[in-house]
Simulated assay, not measured.
Amino acid sequence: MTSPDLLERPDLKDADTSKDDEVFHYVRKNQIAESAVMGNMVVALCGETFPVTKSPKPGSPVCKDCKEIYNSLPKGGKD
């Protein structure tokens, strides 16, 4: 998986507890729309599995594991 395959902003995994526990996860771009419409499950970089239900707002908390994995991936792009 290369970084162009990943969403530039993370998506949310709803927590069953308070909103303080909500964090956004990085998932593949091509899975987001289908998950949001059809309710299909997506797998985040950290391994969490969930349906996409919300979009993040600037400053939203990001899963620490997803962020570390994303930052360690080679950055794709054309030279």
Rank of each mutant, 00 (worst) to 15 (best):
T2K: 09
T2A: 05
S3H: 05
S3V: 09
D5T: 09
L6W: 12
L6V: 12
L7G: 04
L7W: 00
L7P: 00
E8K: 11
D11M: 14
D14G: 00
D16F: 04
T17Q: 09
T17R: 13
T17S: 14
S18N: 08
K19L: 09
D20Q: 10
D21E: 15
D21S: 12
V23F: 03
V23W: 00
H25M: 04
H25D: 03
R28Q: 15
K29V: 10
K29R: 13
N30Y: 14
Q31S: 10
I32C: 14
I32T: 15
A33R: 15
E34M: 10
S35F: 06
A36S: 15
V37T: 11
V37G: 00
M38T: 11
M38C: 08
G39L: 02
G39Q: 02
V42N: 06
V42G: 06
V43G: 03
C46I: 04
C46T: 02
E48V: 04
E48L: 01
E48Q: 07
F50H: 09
F50R: 08
P51K: 02
S55Y: 12
K57I: 07
G59I: 04
S60L: 00
V62F: 02
C63G: 06
K64M: 11
C66I: 05
E68I: 11
E68C: 05
Y70C: 13
G76Q: 06
G77K: 05
K78S: 11
D79P: 15
D79W: 09
